[in-house]
């Protein structure tokens, strides 16, 4: 009997939902040939440790926003280019396009990782202490970002100071004004009840977070062929089932935010459009710096273009 440890850093969000549906689907097919154990909320260690864990086989499965998987393979960056997708539906149409989805599954095999789930997570917003209603309002703000250039460079482009602070420092620093804001998805902001600390969120349309569930390929190959197929199918079924759940979860989180006195601001349409165009060109420059990643970015753009033309 095999144990499949599924790790993630979050809880009660779309990633956790994916794990639960996957477990249900897989156990329905294979019975107790595999025991799926879900470890949400960083129970198996900090994010880098979980990422290395799945790469080296101490953890069988790990689901995470692609930005945390880039140390394992820079190719994960292509899904993180700001301004890439116009809507969650477009994102879903692209990553769940049957041919492209097959490609995603095997895209990281040379790094010993197989993708068994690719899901829409949430849009990236900016949370701020003071309202941000124009692009100029972001000038000079100290904004917590990930250390990724795909977050740092766009923030610098609008004149903000990107501050890659560890998560444990964010709350006290936001409270004291040591930082003025942070980039995050709304489900995270409401889960941590950030409306008790800062009230303002601006919908930047910055990027849509894609989460991917990777499994250790060596472990996957050690399973019987029918189990392998069951894992693949359970992943496909789970990602189809959780997409509407994820979209609704974002809407629900937005409601929770405003119900608790939080504000959601929009940028003027023309400013937003110009900003996103700039972000996208900055992002493209980052991901095309390295040939293998550039090639994947081109491929992704091709699928995206085909979807847009079909509509």
């Amino acid at each position: 009997q095999t144990v499949m440890k599924m790790a993630s850093a979050t809880i009660n969000d779309v990633q956790h939902e994916f794990q639960k549906v996957f477990k249900r689907e897989l156990e329905a097919t294979v019975g107790d040939a595999i025991t799926v154990e879900i470890y949400p909320a960083s129970q198996l260690g900090p994010i880098p440790q979980m990422a290395e864990g799945v790469a080296f086989g101490t953890i069988e499965s790990f689901i995470s926003p692609t930005s945390f998987l880039t140390p394992l393979d820079p190719k994960f960056q292509v899904f993180d280019v700001p301004g890439l997708f116009a809507s969650p539906d477009e994102l879903s149409a692209v990553i769940h396009d049957p041919d492209y989805r097959d490609h995603i599954e095997t895209m990281f095999l040379d790094r010993g990782l197989r993708v068994i789930g690719a899901i829409y997570n949430s849009p990236v917003l900016i949370l701020t202490r003071k309202p941000v209603e124009t692009v100029a309002d972001m000038k000079g703000l100290k904004v917590r970002t990930f250390a990724s250039p795909l977050q740092v460079l766009p923030m610098e482009a609008v004149g903000a100071i990107a501050t890659p602070l560890p998560l444990s420092e964010v709350v006290p620093q936001l409270q004291s004004g040591g930082i003025d804001g942070m980039l995050a998805g709304m489900p995270i902001l409401t889960a941590f009840k950030f409306y008790d600390i800062a009230k303002n969120v601006t919908d930047l349309d910055f990027s849509f977070i894609v989460s991917m569930n990777v499994v250790n390929e060596q472990w996957f190959q050690s399973q019987a062929p029918e189990i392998q197929e069951a894992i693949r199918q359970a992943g496909r079924a789970a990602e189809a089932e959780v997409f509407p759940w994820g979209v609704e979860n974002v809407a629900r989180a937005n409601g929770v935010w405003t119900d608790n006195g939080g504000m959601i601001h929009q940028l003027p349409a023309d400013e937003l459009k110009a900003m996103l165009a700039e972000f996208e060109s900055i992002g493209a420059e980052v991901v095309t710096a390295e040939p293998a990643t550039a090639e994947e970015y081109e491929r992704l753009q091709g699928v995206l273009k085909a979807k847009r033309e079909a509509n």
């Binding site: 009660n12 998560l167 709350v171 006290p172 941590f192 009840k193 008790d196």
Partner: peptide, 18 residues
Amino acid sequence: PSIAMILYGAAAEQSIAK
């Protein structure tokens, strides 16, 4: 500030400020 409370807030989805 307390790291224990920040971790509890993260794992139990509670307001760290509160």
